[in-house]
């Protein structure tokens, strides 16, 4: 009943999986599981990049997929898990809004993103144009996660999820960015997480907690 080629269908399934993982991250309470979900998001991203590389015959995307695999599935989750263990923040505090409300807000964001992407994808010519809506939704959901979470570690995970969404948007609309930029971003993210890791210890030393609400009270003393 559908005339779409199999690769495109598979790509749609992967994109849908990415969206599902975003929602799972939005509602996950335990930090350790959050990191595992982030790694899964990276794995789905790698698979979709490989698929696009194979269907569009773009050899540079293979490199990009390999980079995603090493950095987003291997290195970053490993670093984050180590941080979580050393900081002892297994259990995140409750999100600022309760979870069902968060999900409904997320749903509204998805509708917004899909509506926004419709005219853009009508203009695009890539095989992956329809997944732009999902990429936008993933970005907005990561923003929502940044807003709704309190502790520093989950905010960093939200930031990395945001980067995943941007990467997916780039591959789905323009078949990826030039290699130099991609390498630069990967390095930036990696260094960013290192710097954040140092910050975590500083924040904890100062306030005995990783709750970012303490940062708001700086002016008073």
């Amino acid at each position: 009943m559908s005339a779409l080629p199999f690769a495109t269908q598979l790509l749609h399934v992967l994109a849908a999986g990415l969206l599902l993982l975003s929602f799972a991250m939005l509602t996950q309470r335990r930090t350790r599981r959050l990191v595992v979900l982030l790694a899964w998001q990276g794995a789905v991203l790698t698979a979709s990049t490989l698929l696009i590389a194979a269907t569009a015959h773009l050899p540079h995307l293979y490199w990009s997929a390999a980079l995603t695999l090493t950095v987003k599935v291997g290195l970053l989750p490993w670093l984050l898990l180590r941080l979580v263990r050393r900081l002892g923040v297994e259990r995140d505090s409750e999100p600022l809004v309760n979870v069902p409300t968060l999900m409904l807000v997320g749903l509204a964001l998805v509708i917004f993103a899909f509506g926004l992407a419709q005219p853009i994808s009508a203009l695009a010519t890539t095989v992956t144009r329809q997944t732009l809506g999902i990429a936008l939704a993933v970005i907005l959901l990561a923003f929502l996660m940044l807003i709704a979470r309190r502790t520093a570690v989950t905010q960093v995970i939200g930031f990395l999820a945001l980067e995943n969404g941007l990467f997916f948007a780039a591959t789905s609309t323009t078949y990826g960015m030039p290699m130099v930029i991609e390498l630069g971003i990967a390095l930036d993210v990696l260094v960013g997480v290192f710097v954040f890791g140092i910050f975590f210890f500083q924040i904890r030393e100062q306030f005995d907690s990783l709750d970012l609400q303490h940062l708001e009270a700086l002016k008073e003393d």
């Binding site: 749609h12 994109a15 849908a16 969206l19 599902l20 929602f23 749903l107 998805v110 509708i111 899909f114 992407a117 419709q118 329809q130 997944t131 809506g133 999902i134």
Partner: peptide, 9 residues
Amino acid sequence: LGLLVHLLL
């Protein structure tokens, strides 16, 4: 979400 994804894709 399934409905929305169906409408989008």
